[in-house]
Amino acid sequence: MLLGLPGVNGKRESPMLQRLVALFVTETVRNVRSLQRLIATGDSAAVKALVHKMKSGCFAIGALRLAALARALDERMKSGAEPTPTEATGFAEAWEGCRQALLDEGLISMELWSRVEGPLEQ
């Protein structure tokens, strides 16, 4: 999926791909962390806006598990439900999987990783 993104055109070494992934990682690290905090404090409106944003971003880049979680929470909240701590954990796990996949694929370097903020479970 990533390789089909604009500016990448199937090239792993494409600078665009590196920029996209870097941005995705940075954004997602921040978003997942914010989500956990917002769910813990019960700020439903902010949670709703954030999952909506994550939903499209994750879909776009191909982080399908994250996207599916975001969509499920979005849908539930639309019908009036509140987010649960379990869901927060789910996002963290999904992101971990996603991160691992990116590392495995060699699309993300340890160097980049260390530049991004510290571990999620902090």
Binding site: L5, P6, G7, M16, L20, L23, F24, G57, I61
Partner: peptide, 17 residues
């Protein structure tokens, strides 16, 4: 778009076009 990722991709997609 408030999502920088979408913006980046859109910019790139349109630049290519």
């Amino acid at each position: 778009d408030d999502d920088p990722l979408t913006r980046m991709m859109a910019v790139e997609a349109l630049r290519e076009g």
